[in-house]
Simulated assay, not measured.
Amino acid sequence: MKTKAVLGQTEVTAILAAARAEAQANGWAVTVAVADDGGHLLGLERLDGCAPIAAYIATEKARSAALGRRETKGYEDMVNGGRNAFLSAPVVCSLEGGVPVIVDGQIVGSVGVSGVTAAQDAQVAKAGAAVLN
């Protein structure tokens, strides 16, 4: 029997707080989504002024990073590199801004962010994930 760490509400709250702090320090209105390792939403926070669609996109970025076990930037790079068929892949958001949360070498969840540029979304997501990485 294998054992692994799982995200609890304490960790989800800490991830959301760190991501919020990074976004607010830069004046960015974003939505932050935290998912478990199966891509299921555990927490969501939409900052004031962020467009409602960002809640959907952030959730999909988190789900894709969890299920794919990697940053969603990799998918975006594939598409931008000409692999357009990848756009039809199921349950995958090919936009930068989703990152896995790693504890003791295992992916225990992910963070997805939407609302600003791709690189800024990723910066906020990484700040959230860094709380546990």
Rank of each mutant, 00 (worst) to 15 (best):
M1Q: 10
M1D: 13
T3F: 05
V6M: 14
L7M: 12
G8M: 03
Q9G: 10
E11A: 15
E11K: 07
V12P: 06
V12L: 04
T13I: 00
T13F: 00
A14D: 11
I15T: 02
A18P: 01
A19S: 14
A19R: 08
A21N: 06
E22D: 13
Q24Y: 00
A25C: 01
A25Y: 00
A25N: 11
N26V: 00
W28C: 01
V30Y: 03
V30D: 00
T31V: 13
V32Y: 08
V32Q: 06
V32F: 01
V34Q: 06
A35F: 06
A35S: 15
D37T: 11
D37E: 15
D37H: 15
G38M: 12
G38R: 14
G39Q: 05
G39K: 06
H40A: 12
L44K: 11
E45I: 02
E45H: 09
R46V: 06
R46K: 12
G49Q: 04
G49K: 02
G49I: 07
C50L: 01
I53V: 15
I53N: 09
A55G: 15
Y56M: 11
Y56Q: 15
Y56R: 12
I57Y: 03
A58G: 11
E60N: 14
E60P: 00
E60R: 11
R63C: 02
S64K: 05
L67C: 07
L67A: 08
G68L: 14
E71Y: 00
E71D: 12
T72K: 04
K73H: 03
G74E: 09
Y75E: 10
M78F: 08
G81F: 02
R83A: 14
N84F: 08
A85D: 15
L87V: 13
A89F: 12
V91M: 14
S94V: 05
S94L: 06
G98Q: 05
V99G: 02
V99H: 01
V101W: 04
V101K: 07
V101M: 06
V103P: 00
D104A: 14
G105F: 13
G105V: 09
Q106R: 09
Q106V: 05
V108Y: 07
V108C: 10
G109M: 06
G112P: 04
G112H: 00
S114R: 05
G115E: 07
G115M: 08
G115L: 05
V116S: 15
V116G: 05
Q120M: 07
Q120P: 02
A122F: 00
A122G: 02
A122S: 13
V124L: 09
V124S: 08
A125R: 04
K126R: 15
K126T: 06
A127M: 02
G128D: 07
G128S: 12
G128A: 09
A129V: 00
A130Q: 07
L132T: 07
